[in-house]
Design a protein around this nucleic acid. Structure first.
Lengths: 347, 347
DNA sequence: TTCCGAAACCGAAACGTTTCAGTTTTGTAT
DNA sequence: ATACAAAACTGAAACGTTTCGGTTTCGGAA
């Protein structure tokens, strides 16, 4: 069916190399250029990118491995990534590994077999096993959101520790002492950072941390629901809570709603990530927001830069870069002063 | 660098064809099988999928074109698609066309050049221009959520008309007469269907439709905000409103919140799509939900089936199938009886 | 007109698989 | 032991592009 460059050559009477040169920005005499273009039209020729990839050993394809496409944070980042990459001619193969380390490793191998030119990964776990093999190919890897010890590659992170610190400081500043944390899985880099920021703020306020006030969730809606329920049950004296991602924030709000707990009169709450959701809540939520767009754009930009470097002869690979982006604390109406807070009467 | 099958052949003393046969499930004697496997280990051999694609003229890759990855409805569907497809060895290239017809066409061409084996599209507009060229290749196309007149291919849809009808009937059933509609763009298939369902319900209740009660939004948060604001301004007597996708529902809730309009005392509301969001709202929302997971799984299944068909010699291609999935109406607390509704005092 | 360097052109080889048509080996029945 | 069909194996050709040297053509200077 489809015409090939050979057909173009025959049709135009030109050599194969000339046709190729035409498609790769080489110099072609004007009259030949029009001849070629006419032939393309006639034969409905279309470049075969597969053959090209095969020959050049580059696929102009980037693999992206993420824990959950359903997670808006991830989805938004991918939106940006894909946008930037495609506008530079790169395709994006997305692999959702469902927060599963085994699937994550399989995804990386899958991408490697398909010879992607680079991998952008939001890693599920703290070790680098799933990327070791790919990293040996020398092709670039960019990590987003979470760092991995011992894997020397570029990272785009947000300053989670400071973000959590700022958030919890707002609570202590309002006089809260019994502050709950709905945190993430202990195995996740960002979760540890956010926990650390929480502890920083408590320390700063001279409050001794209490294990019973810390719940390790799983970054899902259900996890958030369960987390806040447990915290309230175990701590009748808790007056504020900090929830550390969007899905769990939503879960917490659902539970509070359904249990009829009033925000912020009975409990102050600071959430995470989704400013529109925060505004849609009643009362609106005070939240930490991350610069999602920038994360995606930055990661894509770094990836493209690395790929360009490789092209250049003997350009020494730059030092690995670690970009750490700033978060913001967006004020809503979900935080009240301690002496406005009238507490709860739970079972 | 990377070893090839030729290297394996040399290392094992076997023929190239035997190695190939090994990788393609052909019969190989046990002792040779172990020899090959040892060689794979030694040489760190890895199948070159690009070369394979080149030779076989199939990429085991599916292109997915959607209007907005940021739209949770889309993101959820893609999650399912990708899951099913990858578990069958297919890669998924996602193209977010930002609800732009030009970008949509470019995306389709991009995918065609890359020789994807099929395209799954949630089309932005009602004509088939962007898919005509691909469809000429004879490779399968599956449309999701929106149909296109004159493009004979499989579709997976939801019964939007009935869904809207049911929702609005709930409102008329509660005695509402002045019911607003925050609808989608006039160019979008689902939007028209939902509008039709709205009109059906009004007719059924003997209510004459009023242009001023119909707002054509753009399926974004901002559009929903603007829509409800306009409707309230233009219709002081409006007592209920039906919002026809998740993003606009969120936008509407934000505006109602920020304007201090109470749901359902001042206005009854029925939203769309995201049951978790509906529960997180205060009061919880009554909404129409679509079977997102099924849509994705169904679309992927149909695609895989078509691809399998092609393999088989002379298997007559089945009739195009149009699957229409059922929606559900999930009750919340955002709809009140007309005589509970005390109306608004707007400027 | 002649000459020259530069620009444009050219064919052939190569990339790593699959597949074809043919050859050898195997196991079994005689 | 022999014959035979089936199973297992084989090398070579082919897929559509890029790239390497080498050849032709061009346009301007002398």
């Amino acid at each position: 069916m489809g015409a090939t460059m050979k057909d173009l050559a025959k049709e135009t009477g030109l050599g194969l190399a000339t046709i190729s040169s035409y498609f790769n920005g080489g110099n072609v005499r004007e009259k030949n250029r029009v001849k070629i273009e006419k032939a393309i039209k006639n034969l409905h020729y279309e470049v075969n990118e597969v053959a090209r990839s095969f020959k050049t050993n580059t696929t102009r394809t980037i693999g992206v491995v993420i824990p959950e496409l359903n997670n808006t944070f991830c989805a938004q980042i991918i939106t940006e990534l894909e946008d930037v990459l495609r506008s530079h001619g790169y395709a994006t193969i997305v692999c959702d590994c469902r927060t599963d380390e085994t699937l994550e490793k399989e995804a990386a191998e899958f991408l490697q077999r398909r010879r992607v030119d680079g991998i952008i990964s939001m890693p599920v776990s703290t070790n680098s096993r799933h990327l070791d093999s790919f990293s040996r190919t020398g092709k670039p890897i960019v990590l987003i959101d979470r760092m991995i010890q011992g894997l020397p590659c570029d990272c785009v992170l947000t300053d989670n520790r400071r973000a959590a610190h700022d958030a919890v400081r707002l609570l202590t500043g309002h006089g809260h002492k019994r502050i709950g944390l709905v945190g993430g899985p202990g195995s996740v880099y960002t979760a540890l950072e956010r926990l650390q920021g929480y502890l920083d703020a408590l320390k700063e306020a001279g409050i001794r941390p209490d294990e019973r006030l810390i719940y390790n969730g799983d970054y899902t809606i259900r996890g958030g629901s369960e987390g806040i329920r447990r915290l309230m049950q175990d701590n009748p004296d808790m007056t504020a809570v900090f929830v550390t991602n969007y899905e769990m924030t939503m879960g917490a709000v659902i539970t509070l709603n359904e249990e009829g707990v009033r925000i912020p009169e009975q409990i102050s709450l600071i959430g995470f990530d989704n400013p529109e959701f925060a505004r849609a809540c009643n009362p609106s939520l005070t939240i930490v927001t991350q610069p999602v767009r920038e994360i995606g754009q930055e990661a894509a930009a770094i990836m493209l830069e690395r790929l360009a470097e490789e092209q250049q002869t003997e350009k020494k690979p730059e030092e690995r870069s670690i970009r750490r982006l700033k978060t913001a604390l967006v004020a809503g109406r979900s935080v009240a002063d301690i002496n406005v807070c009238c507490g709860r009467n739970m079972t």
